[in-house]
């Protein structure tokens, strides 16, 4: 997994590529924790995300909770396979997917 961050004022875009799974989810969690300060809009770009597991979902859920308090979070460019995961787990109702 690779993580790319672009900060534009209070808007942070995080592009995640590869696999977000049991081994890589803690990496994303750590990256996000460092970035919450001052962020009002968090955009997660999943264009290059190939795989998502429940371990990744947990990180997304935690991020959503943080951003609910200080602004908003959206997920962009979700492919069909990843979207299926959001649907079967009910995460479509919790996350904002554009």
């Amino acid at each position: 997994m690779t993580i790319e961050k672009i900060l534009d004022g209070t808007r942070l875009t995080v592009a995640i590529a590869g696999r977000l799974d049991t081994t890589t989810a803690p990496q994303l969690e750590a990256e996000l924790k460092q970035s919450y300060d001052g962020t009002e809009k968090l955009v997660l770009d999943f264009a290059a995300l190939e795989y998502l597991s429940s371990a990744g979902l947990r990180v997304l859920l935690a991020a959503q909770k943080v951003m609910n308090k200080q602004g908003e979070m959206v997920i962009r460019n979700v492919n069909e396979t990843i979207n299926e995961i959001f649907e079967v787990t009910g995460f479509v109702d919790i996350l904002t997917i554009e």
């Binding site: 799974d21 049991t22 795989y51 597991s53 429940s54 371990a55 396979t81």
Partner: peptide
């Protein structure tokens, strides 16, 4: 590819999680 992807996903969820 889709099948092996699902296999990996089932493995991770059932075994790892």
């Amino acid at each position: 590819q889709k099948t092996i992807y699902r296999g990996g996903s089932v493995f991770e969820e059932l075994v790892m999680q």
